[in-house]
Design a protein around this nucleic acid. Structure first.
Lengths: 167, 167
DNA sequence: GGTGAAAGGTCATTAAG
DNA sequence: CTTAATGACCTTTCACC
């Protein structure tokens, strides 16, 4: 779905003033309340907004150590590894990628010792050929999406850059 | 801060029923309203909950391509690169890490062409010696934190595993 | 626990593509 | 003509004191 200015404005307002109601949101955005309701429903229905769950600072919650682990998977055993990863609470997210590694996953742990335990558990999967891990030292750019939606409108990259559209 | 069962239960309820009020939350959790209010304030004040902003599916919003890029930074030029990364909307997050790379960052783009543009812009920083990128093919484990808080209670990893705490 | 104030739902009207 | 926004109605529900 393509987001217009109002959509992005609403998302920004929701980000800055997290738990405001629809009425105040409509005031802040300068549109009618029903409009806000309709837009939010549209964003939800289209799958752009997947939820409004609380955003957690894992470090503050007692998990100050994070790491990225690149896994090489034995041929045809991704499903098995997927199950294994999903069963480990320390695995925050995992993605299949191109490159020499096959899966990149992100871990959180209470300490370096705890991280080592998680890595050991992780490597107990026989579907994992090899793993390389790097520990997060500091945050350079904190997680964000609004700049992309606001300024990332450099279209044309997929609008026929050097050849005309077929047809 | 250490989270107890009620804290985790509230966070789970907030995740599943995003925009419910405190009253219904107290009913769902089976505790008094004031308790919920106090806990939520405590979670906010302690920094565990940083916000309730909307969670976005970038693919649904028109950015289906994601990539992880490992950067090697020229000695002492991390600040310069940090500024550069922060100025690029396509950079979703970035972390300084151990390992042969110095910074791991995550990008989103409208297409592979768009991704290439972003990578070119990224590499225009003279503080970046070398960059290696992998493209995300699929999600193996979707982003989550609740399993960690719920089951990730294997404490003791930082409770003097093989040596006593320094006195 | 009481009270002022929103949320949520619906709808006819109107503006714009 | 289709789609979307609007302002107004109402009832229920919540947040605050």
């Amino acid at each position: 779905m393509e987001l217009d200015t109002l959509d992005v404005a609403l998302l920004r307002l929701l980000t800055e003033h997290p738990r405001v109601g629809v009425l105040e949101l409509s005031r802040l955005a300068g549109v009618a309340r029903a409009t806000v309701t309709a837009r939010m429903e549209r964003l939800r229905a289209s799958g752009v907004v997947t939820g409004y769950g609380p955003q957690l600072d894992l470090a503050a919650a007692g998990y100050p150590v994070q790491a990225f682990v690149t896994l090489e998977i034995a041929q045809g055993r991704l499903d098995e590894v997927t199950e294994h990863l999903a069963a480990l609470p320390g695995v925050l997210e995992a993605y299949a990628t191109t490159g020499t590694g096959d899966v990149l996953c992100r871990l959180a742990a209470r300490s370096n010792d705890d991280l080592q335990q998680i890595l050991l558990e992780l490597n107990r999967s026989t579907g994992i050929r090899r793993s390389t891990s790097v520990v997060v030292l500091s945050t350079v750019v904190a997680h964000r999406t609004l700049p992309l939606l606001t300024h990332g409108r450099q279209r044309g990259a997929h609008h026929a850059p050097s050849y005309k559209n077929p047809g």
